[in-house]
Design a protein around this nucleic acid. Structure first.
Ligand SMILES: [Zn+2]
Ligand SMILES: [Zn+2]
Ligand SMILES: [Zn+2]
Ligand SMILES: [Zn+2]
Ligand SMILES: [Zn+2]
Ligand SMILES: [Zn+2]
Length: 768
DNA sequence: GAGTTTGAAACT
DNA sequence: CAGTTTCAAACTC
């Protein structure tokens, strides 16, 4: 759904909202997710990797990308989605323009309906044909789900691209071309915008856009091709992109909220916003998310340079997005540029699985985020194979380490994308490009994934753990759940268990992928939102300039604390670094991030529903309390957060936190992942806020997949086996209505508001 | 590290 | 949907 509202909302709040992440989040939101779930799943499988899958679902979020895709695809019909989004801003024109541009770009020959093919051809003559074919598909996919990712990625992408260009030749090829195209002063910037805005693009930059688009298309096309060949280079590029997108680089130091949130929604948006600022072309970046903002920025003042950079970056980013969208296929892109191998476009199959993991995406992923390859279940979903190759980790200045992974496989991509957030792939990209021959795939993948998800800390921890047995980094400690239930943090986060885990009889491992996926399905069937990020950030205030209060973020389901007064990590809200909200049923709430009473829905005013008198405690705490304060306090209390400790928790909150913490400035713009999945978010958060208690657990961004139920049997079959416990709920994947508690409406709220739209989100959520 | 507390997840 | 049980983390000592 297009949810024009978002657009609107976004515009106001702006950056976050605009950011793809936001979109994702929104999409992720329970409600939407559900709907989208099916779609998303497919998409996920196809194009994204797990975590991202989450993104995918969020139709809305993906605005840019999706638009992109769609446009490309349906050039003709810009369709409501685009229009609506853009329209709000007044970009309506954009849609047209965009479409037009797209056409132009894509179709070298103006006439071609299949712009994509044209574009492909242009970029990649040889492979173009095949690619072209695929592209359409991808585009479609992309449109639906990927969008959100794209944006973030783009942002990061740009950075990454640059880096990459420097380092890796292959990447360069891709990137550069795109960059060059983008490079056009205005164009570049716009390019990013394009998806969203494009206003400028239309005319002036049309060419650029076209280029961009074409590139993107090419990328997409390439991606689609699962072909292994491209893998190395392609992978690298992809990875790089992903990385770039993924903001996450975890700053270990920063405490983050855990919520997997990457929670997607929130995180994404938040990240996006943050990045904007930080990034060279913050404005632009932001703009990407929203057309309005972008426009404004442009108008206001984007430095030419900055713009250029941004543009370029964006271009890359988009590519990334595309790639992501393309999901598994992404690799191709790279090839295109280089080898042009035609890959097989097959796309497909992964979808079913992807969805599963995805959730974990975000990341969605989240988150988020996971299948085979890396540690994410999504990966498994996405990837059929496990060819990944990871690459390397680097430490970021922020303290987080970057991990770059390159995977041949799509799954990896997904994973990577997710992971990447943490690190930047850029540097890696170069390395990656070289590609380390496959290292142990799984492990590498997992590492990367974990890193992405949990953050660099996680990796470090792991090292420590390995070296010295440091347990601080441990993850789950499941004894009876076989790590196949939500009790298990790893499983809940959409990641496979890894060394640091102390679980017994663990089935949450790549070798038991089938079981894991089947179980996931069952759980999702029961509760579509089960793997969705728990924390959603509202961006509302953040919007244009107000980063400060991420306060808007909140736990989707709310807590039900009776004895902890929401002052300890027993409380999911607190753990997630968010204040309690209307959705909480807590008693005696004293949540340092904001009490339920004090909670004011983002756009709206407080709504005290009279819930409890607790408000007395701090009605306004949320409001008044700045996150920073909270963080400080929290930090004091929970120094760990900062560190790796709770890898899981990546919170969606992160976004908010980030803002708040950074309060103004994002820790590392470049890094931030705007787009990627929840993970990114979490990462960001971490970076930004070290404060938070512990971040939320890993969450996933993904949406719930739907239910295809492919494997239910599997699980069922396994009754004896671990899975047995799981019941298959709804038979199909339908999404059942959200379980929980609070009524659906809450869910809805959560879903909606999530990150992105401040208002939107808030309104629905809160009000409801 | 063992033991307790806690609240979500799972189950009925 | 409510009530209960199960579970593993968070916390305490
Ligand atoms: Zn476990
Ligand atoms: Zn585990
Ligand atoms: Zn395990
Ligand atoms: Zn609570
Ligand atoms: Zn709460
Ligand atoms: Zn509370």
């Amino acid at each position: 759904m297009d949810t024009p509202e978002r657009n609107r909302i976004c515009t106001p709040k702006s950056k976050f909202e605009d950011s793809p992440v936001f979109n994702y989040l929104n999409s992720l939101s329970p409600i939407k997710s559900v709907r989208s779930a099916n779609i998303s799943q497919t998409f996920n499988s196809l194009s994204f990797s797990s975590p991202p899958s989450v993104f995918t679902s969020p139709h809305v979020s993906s605005q840019k990308e999706s638009r992109f895709l769609r446009r490309n695809f349906f050039s003709d019909s810009a369709k409501s989605g685009l229009a609506s989004e853009n329209g709000n801003d007044g970009n309506t024109r954009v849609t047209d323009a965009e479409t037009a541009e797209i056409f132009n770009c894509s179709a070298d020959p103006p006439q071609n309906p299949d712009s994509r093919s044209g574009t492909k051809e242009v970029h990649l003559p040889n492979e173009s044909l095949e690619l072209a074919i695929e592209l359409p598909r991808k585009l479609k996919y992309g449109c639906e789900s990927p969008e959100s990712n794209p944006v973030p990625r783009h942002r990061y992408g740009t950075d990454s691209v640059r880096e990459i260009t420097g380092t890796s030749s292959s990447l360069r090829q891709f990137v550069q071309p795109s960059l060059e195209r983008c490079s056009c002063p205005k164009n570049g910037v716009e390019v990013q915008e394009i998806s969203q805005l494009e206003q400028k693009n239309d005319e002036e930059e049309g060419s650029d856009w076209e280029n961009m688009i074409s590139d993107a298309a090419g990328l997409l096309v390439l991606d689609p091709s699962n072909d292994a060949e491209a893998t190395k280079e392609q992978l690298n590029p992809n990875i790089s992109f992903l990385n770039s997108q993924a903001p996450d680089l975890p700053q270990e130091g920063l405490p983050k909220p855990q919520s997997g949130c990457l929670e997607n929604d929130n995180l994404g948006t938040a990240e996006g916003t943050v990045q904007k600022n930080t990034n060279c072309t913050p404005q632009k970046l932001q703009s990407t998310s929203r057309s309005k903002k972008q426009v404004k920025f442009h108008n206001e003042k984007v430095d030419d340079k900055a713009e250029k950079d941004c543009k370029q970056q964006r271009g890359t980013r988009r590519r990334c997005l595309l790639f992501e969208m393309g999901g598994g296929q992404k690799r191709r892109l790279v090839d295109d540029s280089k080898s042009g191998s035609s890959s097989s476009p097959s796309d497909g199959k992964v979808t079913s699985e992807d969805r599963q993991l995805v959730p974990f995406k975000a990341g969605n992923n989240s988150s988020p985020c996971m299948v085979p390859g890396i540690g994410l279940h999504l990966n498994a979903l996405a990837v059929s194979g496990k060819d990944n190759r990871v690459v390397k980790q680097e430490n970021l200045p922020s303290g987080k380490s970057l991990i770059s992974m390159s995977s041949h496989i799509t799954s990896l991509h997904t994973v990577e994308s997710e992971l990447q957030p943490l690190n930047k792939t850029f540097s890696l990209s170069s390395l990656e490009r070289d590609i380390v021959p496959a290292v142990s795939e799984d492990q590498v993948m997992q590492d990367a994934y974990q890193a992405s998800v949990f953050g660099v800390n996680f990796i470090k921890c792991r090292r420590r753990y390995e070296n010295g047995g440091d347990e601080s980094c441990k993850r789950c400690n499941c004894k009876k759940s076989k790590c196949l239930k939500l009790y298990c943090e790893c499983f809940a986060a959409g990641v496979y268990c890894v060394e640091p885990c102390s679980c017994l009889d663990c089935f949450n491992k790549p070798i038991h992928e089938d079981t894991v996926l089947a179980t996931r399905k069952q759980i999702e069937s029961r509760n579509p939102l089960a793997f969705a990020p728990k924390v959603i950030s509202h961006v509302a205030e953040i919007g244009e300039e107000t980063y400060k209060t991420p306060a808007s973020a909140r736990h989707k389901k709310g807590c039900n604390c009776k004895k902890s007064s929401c002052l300890k990590k027993y409380c999911e809200c607190f753990q997630g670094g968010v204040g309690c909200s209307i959705n909480c049923r807590c008693e005696g709430c004293k949540n340092a991030f904001g009490t339920k009473d004090g909670y004011v829905p983002s756009g709206e005013e407080i709504e005290p529903e009279g819930e409890e008198s607790e408000s007395s405690e701090k009605n306004n705490t949320r409001k008044s309390l700045q996150i920073s304060e909270v963080h400080n306090d929290i930090e004091e209390q929970y120094p760990d957060h900062v560190t790796p400790i709770t890898p899981f928790q990546i919170c969606r909150m992160s976004v908010q936190l980030e803002f708040s913490s950074s309060s103004g400035k994002p820790p590392r713009p470049s890094i931030f992942p705007v787009g990627s999945s929840p993970r990114l978010l979490s990462n960001h958060i971490q970076q930004i806020s070290g404060v938070l208690p512990t971040p939320l657990k890993l969450e996933k961004q993904f949406q719930i997949a739907a239910p295809e139920d492919e494997t239910p049997e599997f699980l069922k079959g396994r009754n004896s086996s671990p899975i047995s416990g799981v019941k298959t709920a709804s038979p199909n994947g339908k999404r059942v209505s959200p379980p929980h508690g609070k009524s659906t409406r809450k869910l809805v709220l959560q879903s909606i508001p999530s990150f992105p739209s401040l208002t939107f989100h808030d309104q629905t959520d809160d009000h409801q």
